[in-house]
Design a protein around this nucleic acid. Structure first.
Length: 820
DNA sequence: GCAAGGTC
């Protein structure tokens, strides 16, 4: 007996396919198209599924930020495919399942990504499958657009082959995204990291989707900023239609921007006693029932009506899906498959306490044919799969809200349009025309199940005809101002992303979440996205240097190239090489022009020197720690710029957090081993108020740094211990340093391994100290000379318990030699 | 520590 391995992309799909194909057909031939006789193997139990085998990654050292120039990521750095989730052991699992099989049928999504996963599966499985005989085909792909019996059986009867070109176009996309994203991210992160004290971000990422997403938010911000309100004037008239009823009329000119002209029109109308009816009209209009629900529309509604962010909404939808309440929640399609059992789905809702009446009436009177939507060929629209009671979903909470919305939306799609009557009456007052209009609902249709869409109730207009007159109540002139747009709502952003092809139904929530987490935007009330200073500076910087980096067109331009690969019109290597070359040039230009972005940073953020450098380093990763205000409402609260906890700072943080901007190097805690009192040496050689402090965690490349400016002294390299002594220099009063070297590495004269002396005055130590600026020694800060602060001669703040360390004037020339 | 795309 021949054996066939079938692979699907998700468990639910695998189960459905298994159920459909094995329904009393276990001994049926595969199908004519397959050109052979094979039988479905009993081992296909519906659990064989795969999400993704591999993902792209750099090889070895190229993953190390400090070892590699980001520019190398464009060409030199090789990439490899690594198992996407090693814990799942997907490759091994597939090999176990595929061993000894004769044929493989791939049931992956019918898009480029799906084709790509096909070849990943084949790479894993083909080596362990039985070898084909005489050129016989053994690899098949099932192409199906719904999980209905007929579709699945048709696909099985007409098996095709996976498309290598489409898979290659995805390989190219993955490699481009990886190389470009990582190169720009590493460069700008390293360039700005530690340069500005109040730049509240440990990672300044760039990506071909996330950056344009941020771009949309900043574009709106710019419109708001550059908006100049204009004053305009409108005429408003009231006519009395009854003793105690009046109608408010809108001016046909809507508004004028010239006060004198408005005044002229007012003068021409306000003396009139009567308004004459010029025309009346009554038109029947319809408000269309919604299209079948797809992912982005679901996300929009979740955000705008349920107040749920896209990420949260997707998680909720996923839970509803795995629990069997709704169909697959990731789809672009808004058109029900022809054979979709609309009535069957509706019947399931016939006993729900909220909408039983509506559903029963629809079933009795006949459902309406759904509107023709878009068929993307991926998955059917999102629909309820069974009736969900409150007891199951909980009486409150988002799960119930989400489930209820999806059901109401589904019922609405098979309901009738809302019909209403629009009446308008046109009046003449003097020479000017005014209009009044009103809506009367004729039949609510779908708005019954979606009451928030209802046509608002209005008082009906009086019955009248041309030539009738009504007394004018008043005519007045109102002064108004044009108002700026508001920040983008999440729903609007989703629409923009969809329109420009930024991200996919599954990834749009991830990109929006990314720009929030990276602190580029914050979610304000009404789920509006307000860019932060960092977000604004980044986007303005890209505009200044190379606008294409942030424009939404860049993604589509690359996709156009990639489509050529998919269509077999261009060579994979050539397209990849060319596109990488373009971005490599862009990268180099960006690096060379980064000062342009830095100028913008300087406007928004304070250099470290001004905010008080957080000298203390994490004991684990040796990076500077920074105090970040922990506050309610801030989603990023409590985050340190690296994976350390505040406790590592030592005693000062216990019980009471340090104030913002303060690190151990300013803390005067009397007994903490990290505090300024214990580690302060003497007045800074350059700035006015700083104290040079030993960084006790910096060995073996010991450092002494100023706690106010960016002066850093590298000293006593390879000493195995450096301590700040309680004794002070007799000349300058600075604290003496006690330094121990290993015997083999000791640079001290003779066989000495230990020496105590003044870092400013001791001739032995002067050989071992090299003074630098923190910023200028950073390899990413090309050409930067560091920020020199005022060279005041003021006295340093004296650490308690220490004598005041003064810098003797005659030492200035000697100290000048320390600068690099 | 980095992208975007699948999916659970």
């Amino acid at each position: 007996m021949k054996t066939v391995l079938m692979v699907a992309e998700k468990p639910s799909l695998a189960q459905s396919i298994a159920k459909i194909l094995s329904r009393g057909r276990r001994d049926q031939p595969l199908g004519d198209c397959a050109g052979h006789e094979a039988q479905k193997d009993g081992s296909f139990n519906g659990n064989d599924c795969v999400t993704q085998c591999h993902c792209d990654w750099f090889v070895g050292k190229y993953n190390k930020w400090d070892k590699v120039d980001p520019a190398e990521l464009f060409s030199q750095a090789p990439t490899e495919k690594k198992e996407a989730n090693p814990k799942l052991n997907m490759v091994k699992f597939l090999q176990v399942e595929g061993r000894g099989c004769d044929y493989i049928v791939l049931w992956l999504d019918c898009d480029k990504e799906g084709e790509n996963i096909c070849f990943e599966v084949l790479d894993a499985v083909l080596p362990v499958m039985n070898k084909a005989h005489g050129g016989e085909k053994t690899v098949f792909q099932a192409r199906f657009s719904s999980i209905m019996d007929t579709d699945i059986c048709n696909a099985m009867a007409c098996l095709g082959e996976p498309d290598h070109n489409e898979a290659l176009s995805v390989d190219a996309r993955q490699e481009l995204d990886l190389r470009i994203g990582c190169a720009f991210t590493r460069f700008q992160t390293k360039y700005f990291q530690g340069k500005y004290g109040d730049l509240d971000s440990s990672l300044i990422s760039f990506g071909p989707c996330q950056t344009p997403t941020l771009g949309f938010c900043v574009e709106r911000h710019d419109k708001i900023q550059s908006f100049k309100p204009e004053t305009y004037w409108v005429l408003q008239a009231k006519v009395n239609t009854d003793k105690d009823r009046s109608l408010l009329l809108d001016w046909d000119r809507v508004r004028v921007f010239d006060r004198e002209i408005a005044q002229m029109f007012l003068n021409m109308t306000k003396l009139e006693k009567e308004a004459q009816v010029e025309a009346t009209s009554r038109k029947e209009k319809a408000k269309q029932r919604p299209l079948a629900l797809n992912t982005v529309e679901m996300l929009r509604v979740a955000s705008s009506s349920l107040g749920m962010g896209p990420q949260h909404a997707m998680q909720t939808a996923e839970r509803l899906y795995t629990q069997g309440y709704i169909s697959y929640p990731r789809t672009e399609t808004t058109h029900y498959p022809e054979n979709f059992d609309l009535k069957g789905s509706l019947r399931q809702q016939a006993n729900h306490p909220y909408w039983a009446d509506t559903v029963k009436r629809l079933l009795a009177e006949g459902i309406n044919r759904p509107r023709k939507g878009h068929d993307a060929g991926d998955h059917p629209p999102i629909t309820p799969m069974k009736s969900a009671t409150e007891a199951e979903l909980g009486t409150t909470g988002v799960t119930r809200g989400g489930s209820e919305y999806i059901t109401r939306h589904f019922i609405a799609t098979v309901s009738h349009d809302c019909k209403y009557l629009q009446s308008t009456i046109s009046f003449r007052i003097g020479p000017e025309l005014f209009t009044c209009s009103g809506k009367t609902v004729l039949s609510p249709g779908f708005t019954e199940i979606m009451p928030w869409q209802s046509v608002p109730l209005e008082e009906s207009l009086p019955t009248c005809q041309r030539g009738d007159t009504f007394p004018v109540g008043e005519v007045k002139m109102l002064e108004k101002q044009t108002s700026p747009p508001d920040y983008l709502t999440e729903a609007e952003l989703i629409t923009l992303m969809e329109k420009h092809g930024i991200g996919t139904d599954a990834s749009i929530p991830v990109h929006i979440n990314n720009i929030c987490q990276r602190n580029y935007v914050t979610v304000e009330s009404g789920r509006r996205l307000k860019p932060t200073n960092l977000g604004i500076v980044l986007v303005h910087g890209y505009y200044k240097i190379d606008a294409e980096l942030v424009l939404p067109t860049i993604r589509s331009a690359v996709e156009k190239q990639l489509n050529l690969i998919a269509q077999g019109k261009a060579d994979y290597r050539q397209v990849l090489g060319h596109t990488l070359d373009v971005f490599k040039r862009k990268f180099h230009y960006f690096v060379d022009s980064i000062a342009g972005m830095d100028e913008l940073m300087e406007v928004s953020f304070s250099p470290l020197a001004a905010t008080g450098k957080p000298l203390s380093r994490c004991g684990k990763c040796h990076r500077f720690m920074k105090y970040i205000q922990v506050g309610a409402g801030n989603t990023n609260s409590g985050k340190l710029p690296h994976p350390c906890r505040p406790q590592l700072l030592g005693v000062p943080l216990q019980g009471s957090p340090l104030p913002p901007g303060m690190g151990c190097n300013e803390c005067t805690h009397p007994s903490c081993q990290h505090s300024l009192s214990m580690l302060g040496i003497g007045q800074c050689v350059e700035c006015e108020s700083g104290v040079l402090v030993l960084d006790p965690t910096s060995g073996p490349k010991w450092k002494v740094a100023c706690n106010k400016c960016n002066v850093v002294a590298h000293c006593f390299e390879n000493a195995h211990r450096v301590r700040v002594s309680a004794d002070t220099c007799s000349v300058c009063e600075a604290a003496l340093l006690d330094v121990d070297f290993n015997k083999a590495k000791s640079p001290l004269p003779g066989d000495e391994t230990q020496h105590m002396g003044c870092v400013f005055c001791d001739p032995v130590f002067q050989e071992l100290v090299e003074l630098k600026h923190a910023a200028s020694c950073h390899p990413m800060h090309r050409g930067g000379l560091g920020r020199r602060q005022g060279r005041g001669r003021g006295r340093a703040r004296r650490p308690p318990g220490k004598p005041n360390p003064r810098r003797p004037k005659d030492k200035m020339s000697a100290l000048a030699a320390y600068f690099v």
